[in-house]
Design a protein around this nucleic acid. Structure first.
Lengths: 260, 260
DNA sequence: AAGTGGTCTAGACCACACG
DNA sequence: GTGTGGTCTAGACCACTTC
């Protein structure tokens, strides 16, 4: 270990630390001041012009830094009024939703899937309905079981619009799961997710190998491309075998977390 | 309505549409080309210098636009190699997690809460454990029921570190729920979420007024500030009264969705 | 009216990665 | 080496919005 620097500045003045791009240094400097409480919610930051003097840089560079902070919700900007530290960095938590095969692989288990059912139906018939498409639209209905280390971990029920993706009728899904296959073939532009807890009904409990009534996490995903609904899928996971999780840090990685 | 423009360009060349800031126009132009399939995964975009000629603007402006697209995952940039259209706009879905009182208010129902239990404990005793803190740390344990239109919608069990937030011991939580109170008082810097489905045990089912075994969505949130764990909370929601949802669109709002 | 952020320019130097 | 993106500058004009 080299000796400590001669003077230990109290962290967080309008001051650069020389590490990395200047605009990142500015971001860090101000984020630290907010986290330290040196800048408190409602406080006004100096105008860009003044900050560019304090940091001895151009106004563009300051603007880039502060605009970034505003995107992350730490400050709010308004012309004439200036830049204010947000009352609360909003409840801006976000949760990533990832592909099951990746998650399984990441945990070092074998991933496998099996298409267990595959029928052509018309929308609205036989208890199948996808309300984003008109009655009678031709659909492919798929059921697919995903396993981690041999144990069922996700049961998938999916509708695919045959009008939009005619090729789906011929596809055997030997190499790729329906989700992957679609992902590789069709770009999406809008996706809606809904996440809820359900008690597993008999038809879901059986393939998953769990007692009926077991709590399951259900993720619904509706995918649209340029206004056309492409696929609607329900992923069902036994509650004791799967959870969503996400870590979120303000300003990137200032905080070494303190969490396991 | 003015008359339609004389020529209808096929959408998506390297061309501006005159609406809004130039860098947004560039973003739109390229996003459209990707969604249209005019630019396909793996395709290389012209270098910034060239784009700045095509769009008749400065390189800075082009850079700002493309950097944005890269952040959204539509393209990947590498020095020397150039800018490539991503194979798949990754599974970059994210799900916002919001405060229950806001959600309730948004749906036009009355929100209320009630602190139903409040005890001081030492970590690791009497069945209470928060593994991010050492054995024996003084904690405040709170239970709190949140209602929407009189109906229980969220049951909250929370630990607060008394060492970090001594004031919490005196706080009656009359005006603000524990979550709000902490939010106003303590900034956080890192948050971990876990979401799973559970069958409601008796002690949770009773306050929520649901039969034991009912599937519930459980959200765990651990909050840390500058390395110090602040609070750990479990929110439990009856599966039939609550769901998380989120809509995600590529490139902002190009797509009018096609979803209800 | 004036202060503040929003955007744009033309040019520059640098860092990196590939050939 | 050389092409490409990454960053920075000094200056400019404009658009809000509050004073």
């Amino acid at each position: 270990m080299p000796s400590a620097p001669p003077t230990r500045e109290p962290p967080g003045r309008y001051q650069l630390d020389g590490k990395g791009p200047v605009f990142r240094q500015i971001e860090r400097s101000i984020t630290e001041m907010i986290l330290n409480g040196r800048l408190r919610p409602g406080d006004k930051l100096p105008p860009e012009i003044e900050l560019s003097d304090l940091f001895e840089t151009s106004r563009q560079t300051v603007n880039k830094a502060i605009t970034e902070l505003a995107k992350h919700g730490l400050v709010a900007r308004r012309r004439r009024a200036g830049t204010l530290v947000c009352a609360q960095f909003q409840e801006r938590f976000v949760l990533p939703i990832r592909d099951i095969s990746e998650l399984v692989a990441e945990r070092g288990k074998d991933y496998s899937f099996e298409v267990t059912r595959r029928i052509r139906i018309e929308n609205g018939r036989a208890g199948h309905r996808w309300s984003d498409l008109p009655e009678g639209s031709p659909l492919l209905y798929l059921e697919c079981l995903h396993r981690a280390g041999g144990q069922p971990i996700q049961f998938e029920r999916r509708y695919v619009s045959i009008e939009i993706i005619p090729a789906v009728e011929q596809e055997p899904f030997d190499d790729f799961s329906p989700g992957r296959w679609l992902q590789l073939r069709i770009p999406w532009s809008t996706v809606r997710h809904r996440i809820k807890a359900i008690n597993a009904a008999e038809d879901i409990a059986r393939p998953l190998g769990i007692p009926p009534g077991t709590a399951c996490l259900e993720i619904e995903r509706a995918t649209v491309h340029l206004g056309s609904p492409i696929t609607l899928v329900h992923f069902t996971h036994p509650g004791d075998r799967f959870e969503l999780d996400g870590l979120f840090s303000v300003g990137g990685d200032l905080d070494r977390s303190g969490l396991g």
